[in-house]
Nucleic acid binder design. Structure first.
Length: 293
DNA sequence: AAGCTTTGACCTATA
DNA sequence: TTATAGGTCAAAGCT
């Protein structure tokens, strides 16, 4: 299950810091979700600490293209006019249930330091044949506000473009897998992440603590020839100082992603459906789309 | 030499 | 107060 909680921060930034970027890098291509892997590891995002953020950011669509969750079929994810996810599931008009996950609203109690936030959990649903294109399928959100998200939107590794230095590792009780603790190497950046890795090397959970207070580095370690990520997009990634995102790739059959888009909904988007350059979409995504037609 | 990982010890929060 | 768990420190070693 994947759970992403977002609060007072831009969706893009959170995604960027969540380590779920989809780079055309080795197996990370397509967010690291090769078909066979999709079935085994089930992602889970979770956020736990959403301190209010006064930072206002533009939410460019190109950013969305980089994001794991909105990648590929992103042109159908967010309404250019409302800022809301166009998944009908988000506004409760669609009943498609083809997505491996569906979002479940989780209203969390607000506290003194966090604004009202809503969490959506995307659970990995049993695969079944559906008539609806997987990447666009959404589940009714109506009262439930559930929506499904394609599994390929989530990366299985933690290459998020930032520099991280490991500062510790610990076997925790609540998990049989060891946790590795990382700090952002950027000067004065307090962002941290905790990566839980299974014995087979698979990342089972990633927890981000604290947002980056700097843009994503322009020159991050990338395979030569990889130019799919625009520097302008990276430059826009100015960070939310305090967000916590957890990404859990569970071995179980259920995955979930939860996030709060209260902030997201306030954003205006530069792009609309038609503005997405088809040529920029990743091949696999296009392939999936064709299959869905 | 710099930066990273490893790993046991230490610190802190909680029950 | 003590035990336990989770998180962090920091020295040593590696690349």
């Amino acid at each position: 299950p994947f759970t992403i909680t977002m609060s007072s921060t831009s969706f893009t930034d959170l995604l960027a810091s969540s380590g779920v970027d989809c780079y055309e890098e080795d197996e990370d291509f397509l967010c690291g979700f090769s078909p066979e892997r999709t079935g085994s590891g089930l992602p889970k995002f979770k956020t736990a600490q959403p301190p209010p953020l006064p930072i206002s950011q533009s939410f460019a669509f190109s950013d969305l293209l980089d994001s794991p969750l909105l990648l590929s079929s992103s042109h159908s994810l967010i309404s250019p006019t409302t800022g809301a996810f166009p998944f009908q599931g988000f506004n409760g008009t669609n009943n498609h249930s083809d997505f491996p996950w569906h979002l479940q609203p989780q209203t969390q109690p607000s506290n003194a330091s966090s604004a009202l936030q809503e969490t959506y959990v995307v659970q990995d649903l049993p695969k079944k044949k559906d008539p609806v294109p997987r990447e666009f399928a959404a589940q009714s959100l109506g009262s439930d506000r559930q929506v499904k998200v394609p599994s390929y939107m989530v990366s299985r590794n933690s290459n998020d473009g930032y520099g991280w230095r490991k500062y510790g590792q610990k076997q925790v009780k609540k998990s049989e897998n060891p946790r590795s603790y990382f700090k952002c190497t950027y000067p004065n950046c307090v962002s941290k992440k905790i990566v839980e890795t299974a014995s087979d090397g698979q990342i089972t959970e990633i927890i981000y603590k604290g947002g980056h207070n700097h843009p994503k580095p322009e020159f991050t370690r990338r395979p030569s020839g990889s130019t799919s990520i625009s520097s302008s997009a990276n430059a826009r990634r100015v960070f939310n100082p305090s967000s916590v995102v957890s990404e859990t790739h569970d071995q179980s059959e259920s995955s979930s992603i939860s996030f709060d888009y209260s902030d997201l909904e306030q954003k205006s988007f530069k792009s609309e459906y038609g503005e997405i350059d088809e040529e920029e979409e990743q091949p696999e995504i296009k392939r999936l789309k064709r299959e869905g037609e």
